[in-house]
Amino acid sequence: MSKKPQRAPLEYSKSFRLRAWIAGVLLFLYSPLLILIAFSFNDSKRNIVWKGFTFKWYVKVFENDALREALFNSLIIAVLCTIFSVVLGALAAFVLWRFKFPMKGLLESGLNLPIVVPEICMGVGVLMFFNKIHWPNDLPWPISLSQIVIAHITFSFPFVAVVVRARLESFNKELEAAALDLGASQWRAFTDVIVPHMTPGLIAGALLAFTLSLDDFVITFFASGPGTITFPIKVYSMVRFSVTPEVNAASTIIIVLTLIATAVAMKFQDTSPNKENA
């Protein structure tokens, strides 16, 4: 009580104890990742004593055929997943935003399920489904990724739909009416008026789908046929054996990729709220 107040009563963020607490939490969250990144540049196999700076683990990652192939597979899957998810997610968002139709509530809440259902359940479902319809396991290379791509699209496009739907809320419906009045066809009004308004949402959704696909382990683990290796699956099998600077380097590459995607996504979401048609 008698303490001289150095800050306004509600400026809790200036309190020393709170700051120390936050610093502790951030240390907990970041030190493992930062140490992982730091030691990917460490010139020592034993990984724990700093022996000098090197890029050799990165070179090794790119010389490691299996790892490179896995990374390549993951990128192909992520790109395909992104394209399909954006189209399906945008259509789903549009239909739910634009139309009233029977059982709409069911579809709307149903589309939330892939977001909330535990990954393991969906993984199991995908495994049993492809097994049941006797999806061939011995397809040639790019097509052999199709099971994983399908599974990834299924859990990604509802996320895209959520993002795009939020964006559509700021659309002024009179613009579409005006386009139709001025003689545009329904389809033309969609591609020339609505889609441009959606674009920031589409980009944010695309990056979301991309990172979701790149990150996924559990569902891929169940969906992949015996011969297909993606990056997380490869890292998983490497992690099971041991901790090596090579895995650190590979992980750092993925962290950087994700950071870039996130930064771009946030930039687009920042500019998205209804600025142009307020």
Binding site: P32, L33, I35, L36, F217, V235, V243, S251, I254, T258
Partner: peptide, 23 residues
């Protein structure tokens, strides 16, 4: 930010910290 980082990588980072030869 860590939430956006691959789950497997975060778990791996913990392993690297906490193993017997870890940090």
């Amino acid at each position: 930010l860590p939430f956006w980082t691959n789950l497997l990588i975060r778990t791996y980072a913990l392993i690297a910290m906490m193993r017997t030869e870890g940090f």
